[in-house]
Write a protein that binds this DNA or RNA. Sequence first.
RNA 1: GCGCCCGUAGCUCAGUUGGAUAGAGCAUCGGACUUCUAAUCCGAGGGUCAGGGGUUCGAAUCCCUUCGGGCGUGCCA
Length: 553
Amino acid sequence: MIKDKLEQLVQQAIGAAKAEGKLPLLEIPPVVLEHPKEKAHGDWATNAALVLAGNVKMPPRAVAQIIVDSFGNTATYFDKIEIAGPGFINFYLSNRWLYDVLSQIREQGEKYGHSTIGAGQKVQVEFVSANPVGPMHIGHGRWAAVGDTLANVLSANGYTVQREFYINDYGNQMNIFAKSVAVRYAQLLGRDVPFPEEGYRGEYIKDIAREIIAEDNDKYMSVSEQDREAIFKERAYMQVLDHIKHTLANMGVVFDFWFSERVLHELSTVTKTIEELREHGYVYDSEGAVWFKATEFGEDKDRVLIRANGEPTYFAADIAYHKNKLERGFDKIINIWGADHHGYIGRMKAAVQALGYPADRLEIIIGQLVNLLRGGEPVRMSKRTGEMVTLDELLEEVGKDAARFFFLMRSTDSQLDFDIRLAKEQSNENPVYYVQYAHARISSIVRFAEAEGVSLHEDVKYSLLKTEPELDLIRKLAEWPEVLERAARQRALHPLTVYSQELAAAFHFFYTKCRVVGEDKDLSTARMSLCEATKTVLRNALGMLGVTAPERM
RNA sequence: GCGCCCGUAGCUCAGUUGGAUAGAGCAUCGGACUUCUAAUCCGAGGGUCAGGGGUUCGAAUCCCUUCGGGCGUGCCA
């Protein structure tokens, strides 16, 4: 990457100046390179001189001059190097450097932009992890998009990634779920049974009950209520889980592993984990319950692991689950949780430490909630009445591409306004189409060019690309590896959507200024290669997001 | 009360972890198709970066504080 090379060069220049005694430094601080906001300030800039100035007690611009003088022969890389403002050093890349980017893209294809910063490291991303008691909601859609794309990004950066879904198929929620189905079943068969206060009221519960009736009629009215609920629990569970998998598949998300919470209980893993923690002195009994000493790790309260009624808490099972994950040898386990779980982070990290692992082995990404809008108006949803827009309905209405792009457009730290009307609008208001359109447009040019006999032979004369729209587009293409690597480092995905829009914009601008297929064969070929490169990178970027890159629109 | 997230253009949001004159999209207004896709492009207006203090060569960014919004603060998950 250009950036690494530049950092190295600046580092060397400072080192040389130091060796010659021009800069009285003990050590060389890390050099920071950045893209100046102003185009007039060059392709890259460093504030190294400003940082060093205080150290060596010299004016920043003088320090900058010394660094620049130590650069040696630079003509092959730069058009010029300037000192500007308070002491910035601005680098103006030579076009040759930019043309190299085009050949790299051509050589590397879909691997262009990939890095090896994660090579040799195993990472697990756990996300969605919904209760299998009903259809997924919009929030799940956000975590699905975020988790899946994060996994894409990490693997593009060399990590070995596993996607995991933790199925919360144990405990009270499941019992209520089973009871809800059983009551609906009885009601549909004409029995006058009251619906439980805390039951799930969604229409889908009735659908499940109807299906059972369609298959087995009133067969289960003859068994005890307890047995009936037990039977329905399994049946409804399987159906809902299937449904969840189906919905996720519609979003383009496929998990490597589905981990059942039940299994932890069935194999006594939960109790064993608690005993292990007890041996290490992190567990005690009080008020009839079993407690975890979260306060040992800076938490404000200790937490219950086993209730006075003998039932383990969700937290206890989650510790056992995390122990299992940690023992599977991941260098990092990443959980994606909704904002409503953020209060849970501290105790989970405490548990990780109690299990003997460093707290940062576990990383938790908190995603803020999604506000659903339609034409600017909030969509009413009520958990109590079961009235809500499901993820299925959303996907049905706006499609996978728009859904994923919208879910990924904002920082996970920010709440997301999802406007259904905007997402399905096929107009300039919709950023998804804007990016996809750039790709379709290029495809169309390529088809036309081929029909006109323009072909991409080996020796493309890149140097014919020298106008601003062309060079700006190449500069944008050159940014992709930086964007992709930073996304992995920061675990932040929205810069990818921002980038895809910027790249599309750079292309559209180029398109209106530069005729691709024309009289001059060499120029046509050179521009064609630029189009192909752009197409490749657009596809790479959209691919990370899980959005399709259409050939036609 | 305490903890986490957020507060930047009329609206929705970026802002590369402290850099140069704070940027996009939408909306508004004005322009551009006989030539490869106008789902596009160009131009214009629009700002007390919620308020106040501090740290330093330099702050939207870091610290303190006030205000406003969301979430959490269970022997729920």
